Simulated scan of single mutants.
Amino acid sequence: MGANAVVGLRYDEKKQKYRAGTGPKGNAYWKSRVTRVWTGTAVTLARPHEISDAILPDVRRGDRFVIDGSNVMHWSRDEPELRDVLAVIEILRARGARVHVFFDASAGHRLVAGYRGGRDFARALGLRSGEVTVVDQGVVADVPILQRARATGATVVTQDRYRDHSGLTDGVAILSGRIEDGRVILHPHAPLGA
Rank of each mutant, 00 (worst) to 15 (best):
M1Q: 11
M1E: 13
G2D: 10
A3G: 08
A5G: 00
G8V: 02
R10T: 15
R10E: 15
D12W: 04
E13S: 07
Q16R: 13
Q16L: 13
R19W: 01
G23E: 05
G23H: 02
G26E: 08
N27L: 02
W30K: 03
W30T: 08
W30F: 12
S32L: 04
S32D: 10
V34I: 15
T35H: 06
R36D: 12
V37Y: 08
V43G: 09
V43C: 10
T44E: 07
T44R: 13
A46Q: 14
A46T: 10
A46I: 08
P48W: 11
E50A: 12
D53L: 00
V59K: 14
R60G: 10
G62V: 14
I67F: 03
S70G: 00
S70W: 03
S70F: 02
N71K: 05
V72Q: 03
V72W: 03
H74A: 01
W75M: 00
W75I: 00
S76L: 00
D78Y: 09
E81S: 07
D84I: 03
L86N: 00
I89A: 13
R95W: 11
G96L: 10
A97I: 09
A97G: 11
F102I: 11
A105N: 09
A107M: 12
G108M: 14
L111P: 11
G117S: 13
A124G: 12
G126H: 07
L127Y: 11
R128L: 05
S129I: 13
E131Q: 10
V132L: 12
V132C: 11
V135L: 01
V135M: 02
G138E: 05
A149N: 00
A151R: 13
T152L: 00
G153N: 04
G153P: 05
A154Y: 02
T158K: 08
Q159I: 09
Y162T: 01
R163K: 14
S166P: 05
D170A: 10
G171W: 09
G171C: 09
L175G: 14
S176C: 13
I179D: 04
I179V: 07
G182L: 03
R183F: 10
R183V: 14
V184H: 07
P188R: 15
H189D: 08
P191D: 00
